[in-house]
Design a protein around this nucleic acid. Structure first.
Lengths: 229, 229
DNA sequence: CGCCATTCATACCGGTCGGTATGTTATAGG
DNA sequence: CCTATAACATACCGACCGGTATGAATGGCG
């Protein structure tokens, strides 16, 4: 008796599945149901960004995607695994693209100032209210779960190392003052960037973000090598 | 039948209550059961500091204090009210004592450098792991609950205003460079302080805290007025 | 003495949580 | 054609959550 209901429901979206299976199976060319997984990742990212990991609700993610619980637990063995995947496959990539990779060429002070100005201009008030996904997770989870902490720390370490390397290259190129401690400076600049975002988030204020950004830029300008000295 | 058990239990700690009541009632001189409330506040502070507000568990607070649920909900109408009380009666006072009030006299750069050094020296690794209670709550709750956000923002605003006023006084006293924007500088210094704490928390590293602190001190030293210029 | 407010203590509630057990369908491979 | 497996879907579970209803002990006060 239950079978009839199930069959009826199945027919409703069975066509979609058949379509995807036309393109190949997960094993041979890695294509079809990957979409479901990506939907889940995207929705989980949103949910975690809004509520934090611990208060993120599996049921809400399911509701927003239309995916069922069986599907979710088919791809991710647990909520924690889903959180790790969001961190590894979404957040880390974004941080690399936005903050780390641009530092690999050019004058590091120019790159930083440009990025700060771009970010400050592009962020909407909603973006500001939600805050930096990396900083949010870091604040919430680093003391609670070691797996999160290690992953977060790896990203921050990569960021700091990239910035320190860029500053050192800048010193060798005569763009950056030679008397600064590049490691300590990198630590502080990353901390200040995240601190500015956090301050603006709490104040829900674009002005605070800009003030903080301008003061940081003022500091960064002071890192440039003096001419003829 | 239930009455017997209750009476028996009551007698167990009834003596303590009689003792406290000897000192007076809550109405006439505000003393006795205030202790229970303070116990609750202290335990709630610990719980929130460790797990965040949303993941803080009323049952755990009850277990750690030995207080019952009836007692808790006698003093606080809801979990949120308890959280607000922790913020208003514990966290705010600590921030004022440690960071804001010292700025009211002396050379602001000296005061800041001293406080940073003191804090950096006194924080244990556990303190570092748990992070700044204010920053934790701010990151977690500002986008989720407006009551928390307002309270947190008031504390940050007070801090920034106090620092800006101190810097301005420093300018007038010829201790601080006159060409800096004191408001923007205050915003950034507060952001950097919290950012350093957050970075050290995630790295679980005293070294990161000291590096960040030293770089910030280096920046602060640069705010001093140049002699003979 | 009697009444009433304070200060708790206990039992219980509906709801949500993450997680699982089982079933169904479609396709790939032999 | 047969079997195995991927990819779901549904129903259900126990644990825990914040919150409440009820009542008992106690002491102040008229």
């Amino acid at each position: 008796m239950a079978a009839e209901r199930v069959i009826g429901k199945r027919d409703g979206n069975g066509g979609k599945k058949a379509f995807w299976h036309f393109w190949g199976c997960g094993r041979c060319c890695a294509a079809p149901s990957e979409e479901t997984r990506q939907q889940l990742l995207a929705a989980a990212f949103e949910e975690i960004h809004r509520f934090g990991f611990q208060s993120a609700s599996i049921s809400r993610i399911l509701k927003h995607t239309g995916v069922t619980k069986g599907a979710l637990y088919h791809y991710f063995p647990s909520k924690k695994a889903l959180g790790y995947a969001v961190l590894d496959e979404m957040i880390r990539d974004r941080m690399r693209e936005l903050w780390i990779e641009p530092l690999q060429q050019g004058n590091p002070v120019d790159v930083l100032v440009d990025t700060i100005n771009t970010v400050g201009r592009q962020m909407t008030l909603e973006d500001i209210q939600l805050g930096c996904p990396l900083a949010n997770l870091s604040q919430e989870m680093s003391a609670v779960d070691e797996g999160f902490r290690e992953r977060l720390d790896a990203i921050y370490a990569e960021w700091r190392a990239g910035l320190a390397a860029a500053l050192r290259r800048g010193q060798q190129a005569g763009q950056v003052r030679g008397d600064i401690d590049v490691e300590a400076t990198a630590v502080m600049v990353v901390a200040t960037l995240e601190g500015c975002l956090a301050a603006a988030k709490n104040a829900q204020s674009h002005k605070v973000l800009m003030q903080c950004g301008q003061a940081l830029i003022h500091y960064l300008e002071n890192l440039r090598a003096r001419k003829e000295e």
